[in-house]
Amino acid sequence: MSERVFLQLGTRPVPYPDDVLARLDADAIDIIARYSSSEAPNPAMARSALLPLLHLVQSHDGYVSATGIEFCAIKLGLTGAEVTAVSTFYSMYRREPTGDYLVGVCTNTLCAVMGGDAIMDALREHLDPSDETVTLTHLECNAACDYAPVVMVNWEFFDNQTPESARTLVDALRSGSEVTPTRGVSLCTFKETERILAGFPDERLGAVEAGGTPGAPTLAGLRVAQRDGMRAPSVHTPTDSGSAPLGSEEANARESTKEKPAPAPTESVPPEKGH
């Protein structure tokens, strides 16, 4: 008779200690209540609480652990696979333990052209991968292209960076010095940031005060438009079909080309290889 072999897939969740579980339970009740009325509970609506719940478990574990996945699944009546599918889809949910400061370098097109790749290379050489204070990662575009190249620390912006300024930044983080982003108040740790993203109050002095104005790079296009007398095109009243009204000639031209096939590749648009 062949011997049975037990094969364990994945990591078996280790239960949270009782005191941690009690605290997370209380916070989870608060979060879920935002999405489902106690008078008329709606499980489908309550599932919307999954995103902040994932931030909540990250605020304790520093990443989305197997235990955190199980916690979220139990709270929302989901399977572990459903929670895992969501947590691995969004890049803000970490799959590995993260240091006190998550340093992200944007290497999308504009930041890369302006020096983002050089910054990433410099920090890779400068940082020890086993550093428990700073975790380095790539970032997708965070809509700060007017200040490229951009580095983010715990989702706070550090604009117009260079390899040297980025090295100085991570050295300050590792030394425990107070570090203030280009926009915003002093940084808090990754776990503290995650609790704020879960929807709990940001207690930092000045963190939620209104104010601030757009910088010169953001307004550059507007100033050029004003200088050159540029104006937005006039808005046409849409027809019942949702398209702007057309003159008879333009309408006829559109109708005659509607059914035509797409043009064949030309010298300026080479065909795919093998075709």
Rank of each mutant, 00 (worst) to 15 (best):
G80H: 05
P214S: 10
A210K: 10
H138Y: 13
L54R: 00
T137S: 15
N142H: 15
E192W: 04
F89L: 14
G206E: 06
G99L: 03
T182C: 03
P271I: 07
E140C: 12
R227Y: 07
Q58V: 03
A220K: 01
L102I: 04
V103Q: 08
M152L: 12
I69G: 11
R47S: 06
T189Y: 09
F157A: 03
H236W: 10
L78K: 03
Q58S: 02
T84N: 13
M230E: 10
I32K: 02
F6T: 14
G99P: 01
R23Q: 12
Y90M: 13
D159T: 14
Y147F: 13
C72H: 00
P245R: 09
V5P: 02
L56Q: 07
P13S: 00
R231V: 14
T162S: 15
P15K: 11
F158I: 04
T180E: 06
M92Y: 08
I31N: 03
T239M: 15
L127P: 00
P238N: 02
R167Y: 07
T98I: 01
G211R: 10
R227M: 09
L136G: 01
A26H: 06
N154R: 05
H60S: 09
K75L: 00
R124F: 07
A28Y: 04
A198R: 07
L76W: 09
R124K: 15
D117L: 13
Y16L: 11
A251H: 02
S256W: 07
I29M: 07
R94D: 09
L54P: 15
G115W: 05
E192S: 01
A166L: 06
I32G: 08
L78Q: 06
I32T: 11
R34T: 05
Y101F: 15
